[in-house]
Simulated scan of single mutants.
Amino acid sequence: MKRIITILAALSLLLCAAMSVQAADIDLAKKSTLEKVIQSGELRVGTEAGYMPFEMTDKKGQVVGFDMDMCKEMAKAMGVKLTIINTAWDGIIPGLLSNKYDIIASGMTVNQERNLKVNFANPYIVVGQTALINKKWADEIKTYKDLNNPKYTITSKLGTTGEQAAKRMFPKAQYKSFEMEDQAMLEALNGKATATVYDLPMTSIFYAQRGKDADMKFLNEPFTYEPLGWAINKGDPDFLNWLNNFLVQMKNDGRYDRIYNKWFGSNKWLKNVQ
C-alpha cells in the first residue's frame, strides 16, 4: 500500500511540474513580440535606408529594396500592415532594445558582438567584404593581402563590418572612417585614399556606376564570410521560430528567388533611386 501511495505521490508531483511548465510556456507566448504584432495589427521594422540594394529611398521618398520586399511578405504572412522606421545606424540596436520597432531588417551582419545584445534569425543571405582600388595603385595591388601596408590608406563606413575587417585584416595600413559608405568610396575614387572596403553588393553597384569609368580595380572575391540576418529582442523563442520557418517557406515557394532576382539580377531599379 505504501508503495502505491509513493507512486501516486510521484505521479502527482510530475503532473504538477508538467502543468507548471505548460503555464510558463503559455505566459512566454503571450509576451512574445509576435503576439503583440498580431494584436496591434502592425509590424514595425527598423532600418537605415542607405545600403543598396537592401534598403534605400526612391525618388518618391519611399524606403525600398530587397529587405523591404522581404518585410512586405513577412507582414502579409502575419496579416498585418507594415510600418518602416528609418533610423541612424549607430542607434539601430538601441532602438530595438527600447521597443521603437519590433525587428531590424537592415542588411545587418550576424556577429558575436551584436549577438550579445540581440537574437538573430537564420541568415537570409550571405555577403562578404571586397575592395575597390584607386587606379594609381591598381597595378601594384594584386590581392587584398597587399593592402596591409603602411603606405596605403583604406576607407570604410563607421561602425560596420567593413570597418572591422579593414582594421583587423590590414593593421599596418592607415584607416579613415566615414559616416556613409558612398563618402568612403568617393575618397578612394578621387585618389585621396588607396582603397575602400565594403560589402560586395554595394561595391558592385558603385563600381558599375562610377568605378569602372574611373579605371578603379575591383577585388570582387569576398575575403570575409558575412551572413545577414533579422535581429529581434532576446527571450522571444516564438518570434524566432516564426521567422525561421517563414524564411524556409520563402526560399522554397519561389518568392525569395523572385525578390532576389529583382534586386540582384537586374539594375533596372537604379533609375528610380537616383
Rank of each mutant, 00 (worst) to 15 (best):
M1T: 00
K2L: 12
A9L: 11
S12G: 13
S12I: 14
L13T: 14
L14T: 12
M19E: 11
A23F: 04
D25M: 11
K30N: 15
K30T: 13
K30Q: 15
K31S: 09
S32R: 02
S32P: 01
S32N: 05
E35I: 03
E35P: 02
I38G: 01
R44T: 06
V45A: 05
V45L: 05
G46R: 04
P53D: 03
T57A: 13
K60P: 09
K60I: 02
G61D: 04
C71M: 13
K76L: 15
A77M: 02
A77L: 02
G79F: 03
T83W: 07
I85Q: 10
T87G: 04
A88S: 14
W89M: 12
I92N: 15
I92H: 08
I92A: 11
I93K: 10
P94V: 03
P94F: 03
G95C: 10
L96K: 09
L96P: 00
L97H: 02
S98I: 04
K100Y: 05
D102L: 06
I103Q: 07
I104W: 10
S106N: 13
G107Q: 08
E113P: 06
E113D: 13
L116P: 00
K117P: 06
K117E: 08
V118F: 01
N119H: 05
N122H: 06
Y124K: 05
V126I: 13
V127F: 14
G128I: 04
I133H: 06
N134P: 15
N134R: 12
N134E: 13
I141Y: 07
K142W: 01
Y144V: 14
L147Q: 08
N148M: 04
N149L: 09
I154L: 15
T155A: 08
K157D: 03
L158P: 02
E163C: 05
Q164G: 12
A173V: 08
S177R: 12
S177C: 11
E179N: 04
M180N: 13
E181T: 14
D182M: 12
D182E: 12
A184Q: 05
L186K: 06
E187S: 13
A188G: 07
A188C: 12
L189Q: 12
T194Q: 12
T194M: 14
T196K: 09
T203P: 01
Q209S: 09
G211S: 08
A214Q: 10
D215K: 15
P222G: 10
T224R: 10
E226P: 00
E226G: 07
P227N: 01
L228Y: 04
L228T: 02
W230Y: 03
D236P: 00
P237W: 00
W242Y: 15
N244L: 07
N244Q: 05
N245M: 08
L247A: 00
L247G: 00
V248D: 11
V248R: 10
V248K: 14
M250C: 02
D253F: 09
D253K: 14
G254S: 10
G254R: 08
G254K: 04
K268I: 01
W269S: 04
N272E: 14
Q274R: 12
